[in-house]
């Protein structure tokens, strides 16, 4: 098969530090996150507030320069934006949805976002995630909720290869340790 990512050779030498790496792990600290639950006539109203239509196909995303809506369920989306922008977003959505049943909830602090970037990100996730992340199946407009090892995650592909992993805050330390351990084979390094 074409080599997309080469592991380090399988020998640990004394005093070795991580070698040339095709993979980096970053804690993105805070990413603005708004949980939106709405259905029926509220869908259009929410689209107006966001400036783009909510993605209705399962496990897809839509967005613009300000925010990106990730499909979580048939009446549930996670709107992702820069940290600090979520309050405004909530205000706009709540105002637009005043007459439609909805729930607009700030969950920015509920999830950490770990970024695993580089060509080797996919084989690292494949060590603990049953999803098929082959680009043919999991393209740039996709999103998925699943498990990595024993942590529930939302996986969002990023430009240039790699993923943002949204994980419940209390699991972030576990997932971080797990990714570092699983990525050792590829010389993973911590950035930022």
């Amino acid at each position: 098969m074409t080599v997309e990512c080469a592991p380090l050779d399988n020998v640990v030498r004394p005093g070795e530090t991580n070698g040339p790496s095709g993979i980096a792990l970053t804690d993105r600290r805070f990413v603005g996150q708004v949980n939106l639950r709405v259905r029926g006539s509220g869908l259009t109203a929410a689209g107006h507030a966001l400036g783009y239509a909510l993605p209705m196909a399962a496990n897809t995303t839509a967005g613009d320069a300000t925010s990106r809506a990730c499909w979580l369920g048939p009446d549930e989306w996670l709107i992702v934006c820069d940290d600090g922008k979520q309050a405004e977003l909530i205000q706009q959505l709540s105002a637009a949805l005043a007459i439609d049943p909805n729930a607009v909830t700030d969950v920015t602090d509920a999830r950490a976002v770990l970024r695993i970037a580089g060509a080797c990100a996919r084989p690292v996730l494949a060590k603990g995630c049953t999803l098929d992340l082959h680009p043919r199946v999991f393209g740039a407009d996709r999103v998925a909720q699943s498990l990595i090892a024993r942590a529930q995650v939302m996986i969002l592909p990023i430009e240039g290869g790699g993923y943002d992993l949204f994980v419940a805050r209390s699991f972030a330390g576990y997932l971080w340790d797990w990714l570092l351990d699983a990525g050792a084979e590829y010389g993973i390094r911590v950035e930022g």
């Binding site: 639950r37 729930a103 909830t105 969950v107 602090d109 509920a110 419940a168 805050r169 209390s170």
Partner: peptide, 12 residues
Amino acid sequence: LEVFLTSVTEQW
């Protein structure tokens, strides 16, 4: 019933 649940255990 028109009601939405959102888990906020980790938010607070």
